[in-house]
């Protein structure tokens, strides 16, 4: 074998072994979710169950915890957050990019500053605010703090800066109002950027643990991460089959969506790099 063949082979060998290690927790989680207890508590490595315990584990998981409800909550919360973020951020981004109004420079500085603030740092006053408003332990508590996405404003503003002024002027000549321009001209041209932002927003809020942990108490409001953590606390290391089944169910929606549209996902989440 010559060096010409050796190098690609080495590349694949290195990447495949690293990939194996990276995927191991996923594989082990799924494999465990398929095993009967006897094969889980074993003093040797068993890569794949000899007897499949799929129905039992997944049924037990669904029975012990309202996983469907958690997933639904996740969906409700992430979609509400995203829709509200767009409704708030798009007009502001358009105003910042294309309109001249008093206080515009100040607003942009605040947006840039806002991007730097880690959400955990302001959890205490936010918690007290929602406590005062009597909104703790509700969907509102899960959704409202994230309706303002300064990062979304920044991102969309950067995108709108690249839209030619002529297009906005043409729309004005055509008689479209400033409000109409946001939704009928800017939004359609910004679909790729909005999609990327949407993926970023949904993934980060689906996975968020810190704020839901603080904001809600009732099991009926648990988001998927809260739900699976609560499940694990109840099981406390006794019943790994159903626990891994629950973890698999919680992870499945995003991972499947990712596998279907990985390029868009990577673009979308890499956006956080700007954050």
């Amino acid at each position: 074998m010559t060096a010409r063949h050796l190098l690609p082979a080495l590349r694949h060998a290195a990447l495949l072994s690293a990939g194996f290690v990276v995927l191991l927790p996923f594989f082990w989680m799924i494999a465990t979710s398929l095993k009967p207890p006897a094969e889980i508590f074993l003093s040797e490595i068993r890569w794949w169950p000899e007897t499949l315990h799929v129905r039992e584990n997944y049924a037990a998981a669904l029975e012990k915890a309202p996983l469907g409800r958690y997933l639904l909550n996740g969906l409700i919360v992430t979609v509400s957050i995203f829709v509200l973020q767009v409704m708030v951020a798009l007009p502001a981004a358009y105003a910042l990019a294309k309109l001249r109004f008093p206080g515009r420079g100040m607003l942009f500085v605040l947006v840039l500053f806002g991007i730097l603030i880690p959400p955990q740092a302001i959890a205490v006053p936010l918690f007290l605010l929602f406590h005062q408003l009597g909104l703790l332990d509700s969907y509102a508590a899960l959704v409202l703090p994230f309706t303002i996405s300064v990062f979304g404003i920044f991102l969309m503003r950067q995108f709108f800066m690249t839209v030619p002024d002529d297009l906005v002027d043409a729309a004005r000549m055509d008689g479209i109002s400033e409000f109409g321009i946001v939704w009928t001209v800017m939004l359609p041209t910004a679909i790729p950027a909005v999609t990327a932002f949407g993926i970023f927003s949904v993934v980060s809020h689906w996975n968020d643990y810190f704020w839901p942990l603080i904001a809600v108490n009732s099991e009926t409001l648990f988001t998927p991460p809260l739900g699976v953590a609560a499940f694990r606390n109840e099981e406390a290391g006794t019943d790994y089959g159903p626990l891994m089944a629950a973890a698999t169910i919680v992870i499945a929606p995003l991972v499947i969506a990712f596998l279907l549209a990985q390029r868009r996902f990577i673009e979308g989440i890499a956006l956080t790099g700007m954050k």
Binding site: P164, D166, L167, D169, A170, A171, M173, G175
Partner: peptide
């Protein structure tokens, strides 16, 4: 008078066509 109410039409250097329509 607002631009659209002046009954003028404008052709822009970059054409300014709505890309999604």
């Amino acid at each position: 008078v607002r631009p659209s109410a002046r009954d003028l039409a404008m052709v822009f250097q970059s054409y300014a066509l709505y890309p999604h329509l």
